[in-house]
Write a protein that binds this DNA or RNA. Structure first.
Length: 386
DNA sequence: GTAGGGTTAG
């Protein structure tokens, strides 16, 4: 009964029964895990943790769900911390991470993008080879790629021989993200040669790879192949990729035509599509279509400052200063301000954040990393310990 | 009771 309520997200009912079970000493790890997982669905990480903390015996599934709660709530650092506690815990019988644990923790690590942590997880898996299966391999490929380490993703992909469609897709999007469209296409071809049928997500990955590498003819061809040879009906996501592909290549009119004339009427062009077009208009200084795209975006997501900034940049580039002023006035009237973009450096596992112009803090982080490397290799450090 | 891949921009 608790599982049933939990699965539906009815935590009030689940809790009522759960408390009776606890009072009678009848709760077990399955019921507790169901409770944790139910709180996760309602986005209540702290209530989930309270159940977790109250348990006397936790098995792997319990740990997995709890780690997954943090990961799913965007609290990736806490997910990784809890994974470490899972490894260190002295509970008997000892709980060992299983395939599910690795999949969850790899996804959490992909989310926070820390190469040091990614490397540490990979090292753990390398020492426990039985933790490899197609789920964990796909998740680990994704993790390395999102942490900036495409080579390690490739190593894993190449050494894993029992690839399924998702492993291939994961590798294709990894290569795409790293601007290696030709390699992504090679993996796509290998997938087909090995008798797999690419699905709609796989096509999104390969279209995206083409778009980010400027492989416009290949992208067009894959879009056609998808429809004609694989009978996949394009969704709004595929149109987004194609509009982006055309836009990045400078074919703004064609991209606009795609939205207004080629997309089926039952597919609503959402903010993503107009956003891709607007961005292309900024790159290629297209005021006319930029204004059209922006007008749609202002209706669809009036609070997204980025769209106003893009339009303003288009005007500025064309020296249309009255346009710039109009957009700025619009922002001011609504009290909107563009938050500065920021980035992070992984300084041996700890994050350094910086915004544009804060060159000093970037350099400081880089120097510190250099210093560690020097010390690691037995050289004299450039910064002396305090 | 728990797990993997995709989707605009600066």
């Amino acid at each position: 009964m608790v599982c049933g309520y939990s699965a539906r997200g009815d935590m009030d009912s689940a809790k009522r029964l759960f408390e009776i079970a606890v009072a009678k000493g009848a709760e077990n790890s399955v019921v507790c895990t169901a409770m944790i997982s139910g709180y996760a669905k309602t986005g209540n990480a702290d209530d989930a943790r309270a159940v977790f903390d109250g348990m006397r015996v936790r098995d792997a599934a319990t740990w997995n769900v709890m780690i997954g709660v943090y990961s799913g709530a965007g609290r990736a650092a806490e997910a990784v911390d809890l994974f470490k506690i899972m490894l260190e815990t002295r509970a008997r019988p000892k709980v060992e991470p299983n395939h599910t644990t690795i999949s969850i923790i790899a996804a959490a690590c992909a989310q926070c993008g820390l190469p040091t942590q990614a490397s540490w997880i990979q090292d753990y898996v390398d020492r426990h080879m039985m933790l490899l299966n197609s789920h964990t391999v796909a998740a680990l490929i994704d993790m390395h790629s999102k942490c900036g380490n495409i080579e390690r993703a490739l190593d894993l992909f190449c050494s894993w021989r029992q690839r399924d469609l998702i492993c291939y897709s994961s590798m294709i999007s990894a290569l795409g993200m790293h601007g290696r469209g030709k390699d992504a296409i090679a993996v796509f071809n290998e997938l087909c040669d090995n008798g797999f049928d690419p699905d709609e997500i796989c096509f999104v990955s390969v279209l995206n790879a083409c778009s980010h590498t400027g492989l416009i003819d290949e992208g067009r061809r894959y879009f056609k192949t998808m429809k004609d040879d694989y009978n996949i009906i394009p969704t709004v996501e595929h149109y987004l990729c194609v509009v982006d592909l055309l836009g990045r290549a400078g074919c703004i009119d064609e991209a606009y035509q795609m939205i207004t004339h080629e997309m089926p009427k039952d597919i609503e062009p959402h903010a993503g599509i107009w956003g891709a077009l607007l961005s292309a208009c900024r790159t290629y200084s297209n005021v006319e279509i930029g204004e059209v795209a922006a007008s749609h975006l202002f209706k669809l997501e009036p609070n997204n400052v980025g769209n106003y900034v893009l339009l303003s940049n288009i005007y500025a580039n064309a020296k249309k200063w009255d346009g710039v002023q109009k957009v700025r006035a619009l922002l001011r009237r609504q009290g909107m301000k563009k938050p500065p973009g920021w980035s992070q450096v992984d300084a041996e596992g700890s994050l350094r954040e910086f915004i544009t112009g804060e060159l000093d803090s970037v350099l400081e982080a880089v120097l510190e990393i250099l210093n560690w490397e020097l010390k690691d290799h037995g050289y004299k450090p450039i910064i002396e310990d305090e």
